[in-house]
Amino acid sequence: MKFKESLFSRRQFLNGLLGGWLGAFLASILYPVLRAIFPPEKEPDQVILVSSDYAGIPANTVKMFAWGSKPGLLKKTEKDELVAFVGVCTHLDCNVIYLPDQKKFFCACHDGWYDENGTNISGPPPRPLRRLSVTVEGDNIIIKKEGAT
């Protein structure tokens, strides 16, 4: 196939070559800078707790553990089951508290409320509290991201 005329002039070709090279060069500088500025997420894959530390907690109370750098809340339900939440409000990241007498989680920042299952019931929170999966293996309580096996 033969073109009647060039698709681009020699100048356009050279400018494109030089500009493309310059863009690639700048990207190669920007890449390590951006990588170093934004460190990777440090959420743990799992947290292993010793059962005996958490054995004595009464029903309808929570005990805290560290889920990475966030508070994790291990809750004993009234049926004596263990459930776990990430204790961070889904509205704007404040840490929440469990109020056993009202059976609700409360976020003081913007008056957000969740019921005892972590479902958002009042105030600005858009989603339920994030749940974590809890399994008991021997002497350990293993807490993982929900859905992880």
């Binding site: 390590p32 800078v33 990588r35 170093a36 934004f38 460190p39």
Partner: peptide, 9 residues
């Protein structure tokens, strides 16, 4: 060791 490409910086 931990910061991505921190050693290069």
């Amino acid at each position: 060791t931990e910061v991505p490409l921190g050693w290069v910086i």
